[in-house]
Design a protein around this nucleic acid. Structure first.
Lengths: 238, 238
DNA sequence: AGCGTAGGTGTACGCCGTACACCCGTCAAG
DNA sequence: CTTGACGGGTGTACGGCGTACACCTACGCT
């Protein structure tokens, strides 16, 4: 069966096929095992073949980012800016949960890709349509920071435990070993509280989704308050 | 002169000397040019010599992170949690501005280092001392996210423009080229507004420090409101 | 005097990204 | 039907990376 005509033996490779394979590889083996060589092997091709479709590895990463950002739901038409923004950001979060390598990849690029810019632009548009001044919209975008793309960038993030994701290793739910807990009593205290009041959740300490929405709503509520009172930037004295 | 006794030709290397040299190298040449080989060369030593002082490159990075986190000011004794937190975070921000590679390095480590944990622990302690419930303190820590360490993690951050920092390249202050502006009109709008209302600032579009404090105060004010009203987690129905 | 050990050295391996020359199948023009 | 350009996959090779492993050397003990 393999000796069918050479032309049949595989579909002929294309930028999209390369990018999709790269995303799939990063999703299931971790970003650190995404090498041009591994990727080529997955595609049944010699490494240099990839360079006919992407300029280099950086451009490959940019393409991957554009691909995942493209998965974010478009804004729903709605009168209330807050619901639009909130829904969109939660959608972005869902997307990034499918691609755990993406936050770091996005942050490590030194300029935003076109799809990211388009996403940010439409987010600004939503604020503007919701009655925000240019000024306030600007600061609000900064304030949301990377949260606007759905990642809260935790300092210790269970999902980032190891490069290799996918293969959900069970891993003990214990917050952290006792000798560490002793050295950091306040951290231990909140960790313990978190882990016994939602034992329902998967197994790890805290409910990431809850934490994300908590922070998001804290920001959105504060922002709404500023909007209502017609906040305008009174630059600090310098 | 070089043929002085061998023992004099250089101070004998140590973990601290290695870490300091690594931080200096990353500061001035960018994190991407921090290789064991470059670092060794800076120290006038052969690459493998470093491994007598750090286990491997990951541990080197951890050590560097601990070193910069150690530069953050200790909490000032003060009755008002908000001032303590605010001051500490702004201090952290100053530190990270001296070490632009640090945010990415911190985020890319998969577990927090001891110095980071100690910093977080003392931050929790401040909240607790300020009258926060364990529960609220926990969520608040999540909400602050990486901002608690002084970085707002901008999506397009001028300071991250290129790996090579230090050599402040002048670079045109123009927000972005006109054909890009046309495709992203709302981004262009806020960029233009920002760049002409504080032309005093260095040269780039916006006043990072202002944006950082804007977001920080938005969060702190929201948090203070929750604290005053004795907020307690009423978990969403699941 | 002898020796263990801390710390610097040299060599080598396997991985990485990618430059460059090549080659081969398809298809349009003659 | 020939030809020749060209899009796209191939092979080889280079320089850089992290680091395993064997070595050597000089110092401080006893």
């Amino acid at each position: 069966m393999a000796e069918q005509a050479d032309t049949l033996r595989r579909t002929p490779l294309s930028r999209d096929r390369v990018l999709s394979a790269a995303v799939a590889l990063a999703d299931e083996a971790g970003i650190e095992s995404l090498s041009m060589r591994n990727l080529a092997q997955d595609l049944g091709v010699v490494p240099m073949a990839l360079y006919k479709h992407v300029a280099n590895k950086d451009e490959l990463l940019d393409g991957m980012i554009d691909m995942v950002v493209g998965e974010i739901d478009p804004p729903v038409p709605d009168a209330d800016w807050k619901h639009v923004v909130r829904g969109r950001i939660l959608s972005a979060r869902q997307v990034l949960r499918r691609h755990p390598w993406a936050p770091l990849a996005i942050e490590s690029r030194n300029m935003a890709t076109p799809a990211v810019l388009a996403y940010l632009d439409s987010m600004v548009a939503t604020f503007r349509a919701g009655g925000f001044s240019v000024d306030l919209a600007h600061h609000v975008m900064h304030a949301m920071g990377s949260r606007i793309l759905g990642f809260s960038q935790e300092l210790f993030d269970a999902s980032r435990r190891a490069g290799r994701s996918g293969t959900t290793d069970p891993d003990p739910p214990a917050a952290f070993p006792p000798e560490v807990a002793a050295r950091f009593p306040h951290l231990a205290e909140i960790a313990v509280a978190a882990s016994h009041d939602d034992a329902s959740v998967v197994g790890q300490g805290c409910d990431d989704q809850f934490e994300f929405e908590f922070a998001l709503d804290l920001l959105l509520d504060g922002i709404e308050r500023l909007r209502q009172q017609g906040w305008t930037s009174s630059r600090r004295p310098r």
